[in-house]
C-alpha cells in the first residue's frame, strides 16, 4: 500500500512539474513584456517608448488594442464610435448621424472608420463593425508581438506540455509499480484521473489566451478611477482619454456619449448617415 501511495505521490509531483514546465515555456515564448505585476514606483518611471506594460499609461495607438483584449471586435467598434464622437468628426442628433469631412482622423483606426462611415451603402453600425474587422488582424499581431495575446498554436503547445506531462507522469508511475492488487489499481486509477484533470485545468487557466492582458486591464481598472468618473460626468472630453475609458468599459463607461446613442451592431439598424462638408 505504501508502495502504491509513493507512486501516486510521484505521479502528482511529476504532474505538477508538467504544469510548471508549461508556465516556464509560456513565459519564455511570450517575451519579457508583462513581468512587472504592480504599479510600482520603478514601473511608473519607465521610459514612455516602451511597449504596453503595467505601469505605463496607454497611448492613443494602444486604445483599440486594449478594447480588443477586453471585449473583442465589438469593443473595438464601440471604441471607434466613441473616438469619432469625441473627436468631433461624427455627430449625432436624434437617430441620425452626420460626418464632418473637414475634421481629420487622428489615427489609423479613426481613418479606417471614417472611410467606412463615408460609404453611403453602410449604416453606422455596419461601418463600425467593418472597421473593427479590418483592424482586428493588425491589432492581434501587435498583441502577439507584445506578449499580450497567445496565438492558438502556442496555447495548444503549452496545454500539451502541461496535461501531457501529467499523463506521462501517471503512466510512468504505473509502469514503475511492478506488482499491484486489483484494489490498489482501482484506487490508483481514480487518483491518477484526478491528477491529470487538475493538471489539465491548471494548465488551461495558466495558458489562457490573454492571461497577461488581464493583468494589464486589471491595473488600468485600478488607476483610471478618476478618469472614468470625469468621462462619465462629461468633465473629461479629450478624445484619447474618452476613448481609453470606452476601451475599458464600453459605451456604458462613456455615459455622456452612450446614452445619446442607440447603436445596435447586431441588427445594423443604427441611424442613417449623412455627410456634411
Amino acid at each position: 500500500m505504501s508502495y502504491a501511495l509513493g507512486c501516486l505521490g510521484l505521479a502528482a509531483l511529476l504532474g505538477g512539474l508538467g504544469v510548471l514546465a508549461a508556465m516556464v515555456v509560456g513565459y519564455v515564448l511570450d517575451g519579457p513584456v508583462l513581468r512587472s505585476s504592480s504599479a510600482s514606483t520603478s514601473a511608473m518611471a519607465l521610459a514612455p517608448s516602451q511597449p504596453l506594460i503595467v505601469g505605463r499609461m496607454p497611448g492613443p495607438d494602444d486604445v483599440l488594442l486594449l478594447a480588443l483584449l477586453r471585449g473583442g471586435v465589438r469593443a473595438v467598434a464601440e471604441t471607434l464610435l466613441v473616438g469619432a464622437l469625441s473627436a468631433g468628426w461624427l455627430r449625432h442628433q436624434g437617430t441620425s448621424y452626420s460626418i464632418l469631412h473637414d475634421v481629420e482622423a487622428r489615427d489609423r483606426g479613426q481613418a479606417v472608420f471614417q472611410r467606412h462611415a463615408a460609404d453611403p451603402l453602410l449604416s453606422l453600425g455596419q461601418a463600425m463593425h467593418r472597421s473593427a474587422l479590418e483592424l482586428e488582424p493588425g491589432l492581434l499581431l501587435r498583441a502577439e508581438g507584445g506578449g499580450l495575446w497567445r496565438p492558438t498554436d502556442r496555447r495548444l503547445l503549452l496545454r500539451a506540455i502541461g496535461t501531457g506531462g501529467a499523463l506521462t507522469a501517471v503512466l510512468l508511475s504505473l509502469a514503475w509499480m511492478r506488482v499491484m492488487t486489483t484494489e490498489a489499481l482501482a484506487a490508483f486509477a481514480l487518483v491518477a484521473f484526478v491528477v491529470v484533470a487538475v493538471s489539465h485545468e491548471l494548465t488551461k487557466a495558466l495558458t489562457a489566451r490573454h492571461r497577461q492582458a488581464h493583468a494589464m486591464l486589471t491595473w488600468l481598472d485600478e488607476v483610471c478611477g478618476s478618469l472614468r468618473d470625469d468621462v462619465q460626468n462629461g468633465r473629461e472630453r479629450d478624445p484619447h482619454r474618452v476613448s481609453l475609458v470606452a476601451a475599458l468599459d464600453g459605451l456604458e463607461g462613456t455615459h455622456w456619449v452612450g446614452t445619446a446613442l442607440n447603436v445596435r451592431l447586431e441588427s445594423h439598424d443604427a441611424g442613417s448617415l449623412r455627410a456634411q462638408n
Partner: peptide, 16 residues
C-alpha cells in the same frame, strides 16, 4: 521631462 510622462499620466487618471 519625458521621464515624467507615466507618473503624471497615472496620477491624473487615478486621482486627478
Amino acid at each position: 521631462l519625458r521621464r515624467l510622462a507615466d507618473p503624471l499620466a497615472i496620477g491624473r487618471a487615478a486621482a486627478r
